[in-house]
């Protein structure tokens, strides 16, 4: 169970005049399901990178349940991310040559935490995302199946937050539908916070809250009830 506080957050890149991300304050409670939208260049990717510790902000704090990850070293942030964040990306980043279950377990194995229980969980997860052949090579799968493997990989260590970056953008409608449903189910099962960057209106509509970014700033932050009303 993780909650997020952002405080006077700024991220700028050398050579660019205005900061690409500027958030005075943002709080997301544990278990909340949030959509992040905005045009290209609105700072969505930077937002994701900063809150997951992939990038250090230029200023401000990223506090996850009391721990400011901007103060951690790069190695410590890697370790923190491995433990607390489940990432799902638009183009999967699965590794060819390995089977589905090996892909699910790869990060855990590289971090030397893959014990018997975790291996069993990997098999269970593949089953629950609807893949019956855990030993199938990843390159022989369809894109929809691949994203389902990626989801299983993301939730393997029961992360406090699942971050999905355009998870359905490269899928057809049907596969996108399945992936969206799986993300919600998995987040609910692990009681994880879910942050989804997406343009997919059907997926956005299923989330509790919608944050809209423009030029690095939050321009709208609505709860679904309000949208509906």
């Amino acid at each position: 169970m993780l909650s997020l506080h952002l405080d006077s957050l700024g991220k700028s890149f050398p050579g660019l005049g205005s900061p690409v991300l500027l958030v005075d304050f943002l709080a997301i409670t544990a278990g909340e399901r949030v959509a992040v939208t905005g045009g290209s260049g609105s700072g969505k990717s930077t937002f994701i990178n900063v809150i997951t510790g992939l990038e250090r902000p230029t200023s401000g704090k990223v506090v996850w349940s009391g721990e400011d990850i901007t103060r951690l070293s790069e190695t410590a942030r890697d370790r923190w991310r491995a433990e607390h964040v489940g990432l799902v990306m638009q183009d999967f980043h699965l590794f060819p040559g390995l089977s589905a279950v090996e892909n699910v377990l790869l990060p855990a194995r590289l971090a030397r935490v893959a014990d018997r229980a975790l291996i069993a969980r990997a098999h269970d997860l593949l089953e629950s995302v609807g893949l019956s052949r855990p030993d199938q090579k990843i390159e022989t799968m369809s894109r929809g199946e691949m994203q389902r493997v990626a989801i299983a990989r993301a939730v393997l260590r029961k992360p406090g937050v699942i971050v999905a970056d355009e998870p359905t953008a490269s899928l057809d409608v049907e596969a996108g539908e399945t992936v969206g449903r799986l993300l919600l189910d998995m987040a609910a099962e692990a009681k994880s916070m879910l942050i989804v960057v997406s343009h997919d209106q059907r997926l956005i509509d299923r989330l509790d809250r919608r944050i809209t970014l423009s030029a690095g700033r939050i321009v709208a932050d609505d709860l679904r009830e309000e949208v509906a009303a």
């Binding site: 992939l54 890697d78 370790r79 991310r81 990306m89 980043h93 590794f95 990060p107 855990a108 590289l110």
Partner: peptide, 20 residues
Amino acid sequence: RRQIGALRAFGAPRLSVFAI
């Protein structure tokens, strides 16, 4: 680069990436 970046993003320790 992308593959290596992805490994790190998914939580592979830097030393593992170096070792690989």
